[in-house]
């Protein structure tokens, strides 16, 4: 009951903010805010597999791309007939139906892709998994380049703009809540046990492959949702947005935030996205300055910005018990 009220309150606050926000903070800040939201979903979901389950995946951009293109293609091709079916509803509701349809498709297809990649490759450990996921990301990008119906190398233009601050942050909340509940459940303890010592976990009766695949699939589904929200915000998709560099960006976010910390992943996504914009004043030296900042963070806080904070908090909680 109380939880339901909290959710209702959150939805109402987001819905009340949405119509005025663009005018209030300007379109540029609004755009950054939305991109921050998309990156939070990506970082929190990747953190589930890299931070909590301890599997080093560097193919997150692949699932992100699968979601983005699936959602965009669904809405682009099936959208007009769905609009006819829902003609009696007001435009806002039609948009919502379309977007949710797209995101559902994105989550399903990205989740299936996660399953297809995860089952064979999660039996591998460490570096091998990294290579397989990297390869997968590139395969997806090359496939997209060669499918003409979704624009190929020209890019997918003419995607209707359906997502906005409200939808992105609603899904930010859903992602955080899901990942938070998951890692505080017995599933989460299984994930963490695999990260800490896979052999010990197996000895204790944890079906490691099954839990790894589960964590991988859930992570992929949220990456797919992030892609759908991104595509319906920018109205244009191009394979160049989904190179392996995009995967590394997400890894950087969770590493500077602190691996295995949800707050850290959120903060990492914010610092990374906003940081790149703040450094714009340096012109061509922006990336150098930003990289120096990242190096400094890693030297002085190798555990990430919130890494030890989360750790200390856990100890306190454990102590209290």
């Amino acid at each position: 009951m109380r939880r339901g009220l909290l959710w209702l309150g959150a939805v109402l606050v987001l819905a009340a903010l949405e119509p005025n926000l663009r005018g209030l903070i300007g379109a540029y800040n609004y755009q950054i805010l939305v991109l921050v939201g998309v990156n939070i979903i990506l970082a929190v979901s990747l953190n589930l597999i890299n931070g909590f389950t301890g599997q080093f995946s560097i193919g997150h951009a692949g699932f992100y791309a699968v979601g983005a293109y699936t959602s965009a293609a669904l809405v682009f091709y099936a959208g007009p007939s769905v609009r006819v079916l829902t003609a009696s509803l007001p435009t806002v509701a039609q948009d919502a139906v379309l977007l949710l349809m797209g995101l559902l498709g994105a989550a399903l297809v990205a989740g299936l892709a996660g399953l297809a990649v995860g089952i064979p490759s999660l039996r591998l450990r460490g570096d091998y998994l990294a290579i397989v996921t990297l390869g997968f990301g590139e395969i997806i990008r090359v496939l997209i380049l060669n499918i003409d119906a979704i624009g190929g190398a020209r890019g997918f233009a003419g995607i209707p703009q359906l997502s906005n601050f409200f939808w992105v942050y609603l899904f930010v909340l859903i992602t955080i809540a899901t990942v938070h509940n998951l890692v505080s459940s017995s599933y989460g303890r299984a994930f963490v046990s695999i990260r800490d010592d896979e052999i010990a976990a197996e000895a204790m009766g944890v079906d490691t492959t099954r839990f790894k695949v589960m964590s991988f699939v859930i992570s992929s589904m949220f990456a797919g949702i992030a892609g759908g929200l991104f595509g319906h915000f920018t109205m244009y998709l191009h394979p160049n947005s989904f190179t392996f560099v995009a995967s590394f960006y997400v890894i950087i976010m969770i590493v500077i935030g602190g691996l295995g910390s949800i707050e850290g992943a959120v903060l990492g996504a914010v610092v990374f996205t906003v940081g790149l914009e703040v450094f714009r004043g340096f012109g061509a030296f922006r990336l150098i300055n930003f990289s120096v900042l990242l190096v400094l963070i890693m030297i002085y806080r190798p555990q990430g910005l919130l890494g030890s904070w989360t750790l200390i908090k856990r100890r306190k909680q454990a102590g209290a018990m």
Partner: peptide, 14 residues
Amino acid sequence: RPEEAQTVVTKLIT
């Protein structure tokens, strides 16, 4: 990068 292009154009305009 395409998405950066969109962000900087939004910045330049607004």
